[in-house]
């Protein structure tokens, strides 16, 4: 009775496999349902930088370094301030001495004296991690040491990071660096220890001019959400498709 035994084994195997398959695996999710199941439905952190208000004092950079224990004199920083001076000949003069940690106290840019009557535009641009919705840095991590939290912040697992540096290369905004003490990838965390306690980030608190704001995109009454919804804001390098969540007021195309 060999043929019937073979048939029995085949049927039993197929039946067993079918029974092992959970029903949920066969369920079709609508795109809306799939989207709603992603992340936290109450909080999505976002940042607004008002370049019109920034005066380049650099107190944000100082506060960030001390709050987050980034070695103060090492040439690395989680946030920095860039100075742009545009002259009549159309040239851009850009610098960020020590990341703007000690502010901008001299009109000289890279030892170059720029005459005041040659300047057409001048402004300061604070930069920090964009906490992208589609972070390229997370995609390239080979060990799962960097990730996106449910409320949209990209963090690094210091005990899991092998220090390969792929993420530092992948970030289009250059916000990541190698931590000289922990020997792991390091980046702005939106002061996760502060925002999760209801505080503002160290840089937001330190800014005397209100040039930096952090808020919850999923709260329609949040001032930051209102700015993003009602004012003309722009993000850096939107062409990369990373969907950055740091929005700039007073954006200039020369800012990259």
């Amino acid at each position: 009775m060999n043929p019937s035994r073979r048939k029995f084994v085949k049927t039993a195997l197929a039946g067993g496999l079918a029974a092992a398959l959970p029903l949920s695996a066969l369920k079709m999710l609508s795109p809306a349902e799939a989207h709603a199941s992603i992340g936290n439905d109450k909080v999505r952190w976002a940042f607004v930088v008002d370049t019109e208000k920034c005066v380049g004092c650099g107190l944000c950079v100082k506060a960030c370094k001390l709050e987050n224990e980034v070695p103060y004199d090492a040439p690395v920083t989680r946030t920095w301030v860039e100075r742009y001076v545009i002259t009549r000949d159309g040239k851009s003069h850009i610098d960020t001495p020590k990341g703007g940690r000690d502010g901008f106290t001299s009109p000289k840019i890279r030892d170059e004296v720029i005459p005041a009557d040659e300047i057409t535009q001048a402004f300061f641009v604070p930069k920090l991690c964009n906490q992208c919705s589609n972070p390229a840095c997370v995609q390239v991590c080979p060990v799962g040491a960097t990730f996106q939290t449910d409320d949209g912040v990209v963090l690094v697992d210091r005990s899991w990071c092998i220090g390969c540096g792929y993420c530092i290369m992948a970030c289009p905004y250059g916000v990541r660096f190698f931590h000289p003490v922990y020997k792991t990838a390091e980046k702005c965390t939106f002061c996760y220890h502060r925002i999760s306690k209801g505080l503002k980030t160290a840089c937001v608190q330190a800014c005397p001019f209100g040039a930096r704001q952090i808020g919850n995109l999923k709260d329609p009454s949040d001032p930051v959400t209102k700015i993003i919804m009602t004012q003309r804001v722009a993000v850096l390098k939107s062409e990369y498709g990373t969907k950055p969540q740091v929005y700039y007021i007073g954006f200039d195309e020369r800012v990259r």
């Binding site: 019109e52 208000k53 920034c54 005066v55 380049g56 004092c57 650099g58 107190l59 001076v85 000690d102 502010g103 901008f104 106290t105 001299s106 009109p107 005041a116 300047i119 535009q121 001048a122 402004f123 300061f124 005397p208 001019f209």
Partner: peptide, 12 residues
């Protein structure tokens, strides 16, 4: 940080 004069009329 704030009180060094910089000739940038467009900024605060």
């Amino acid at each position: 940080r704030c009180h060094a004069l910089l000739p940038y009329p467009g900024t605060n």
